[in-house]
Design a protein around this nucleic acid. Structure first.
Lengths: 115, 115
DNA sequence: AATCGTTATGTCCATCCCGACATATCGACA
DNA sequence: TGTCGATATGTCGGGATGGACATAACGATT
């Protein structure tokens, strides 16, 4: 009947939305596909947006999350760096903890209001 | 350098954003002013939006949060009902718990990545 | 050196949300 | 019964965000 929802993200000094669920999902998809193009298709977002998000995250965090390569018979590829993999795992734990806390807090404080 | 941010809200069966930070702040302001108009001015939002938010919350939660009155020398007034006051308090605790959890999870999982 | 599929990037357009206006309505009180 | 200030609603325009297109650039492989 009522559900608690949340959005979670990180701001850097000058960038709103430096990292968040969308970019996290993007990195995960890239890790599985080794391709920015395929990753964007898997997620159902435009390549244009995926590319922009990736660029934004890297610039804002000042970390190289992926290794990009152009050319060749296969056209190119995009793979996660070690830093990128660390970010995926760290954010997953971060988000997981928050999600649990939201559910618990909901039960504790809101659930009683409507039961 | 990096800051964790979050948005929190409640969805009802058919309504996205039935209740959240904005509507919570609105109820708090109404409680202090006993006026929807003054509350909206205090918050720096349009009366139109405040009115719409209030209506949306009440319809979505199916709870009477405020008692509205029109007419009279003072024009009218809007005061919180007991249910409204309970919601303000409950959401405050809900939000407070989540905020603490976000900070803690950030320290635990993200802080180390950039220290 | 010609190819080919991916990465790289600019730009215009649809859409959603909010702010700004514009009015209508109400009704206790003087 | 007229007044007055707040509540009640419709609507239009502007800013932000993402999608749809369009096109350039790249370079390992053949």
């Amino acid at each position: 009947m009522l559900r608690a929802k949340f959005k979670l993200w990180l701001n850097s000094r000058h960038v709103e939305g430096a990292f968040g669920d969308g970019k996290w999902r993007l990195l995960k998809a890239i890790d599985g596909e080794n391709s920015l193009k395929v990753a964007s298709e898997t997620l159902g977002i435009s390549y244009r947006k995926a590319w922009g998000d990736l660029k934004k995250a890297q610039e804002a965090l000042n970390v190289t999350l992926v290794e990009k390569q152009r050319g060749g018979r296969l056209g190119g590829q995009t793979v996660l760096t070690e830093h990128g993999k660390k970010w995926v795992k760290a954010y997953a734990r971060f988000r997981g903890d928050v999600e649990k806390a939201v559910d618990k807090a909901y039960e504790r404080h809101i659930g009683g209001l409507i039961g």
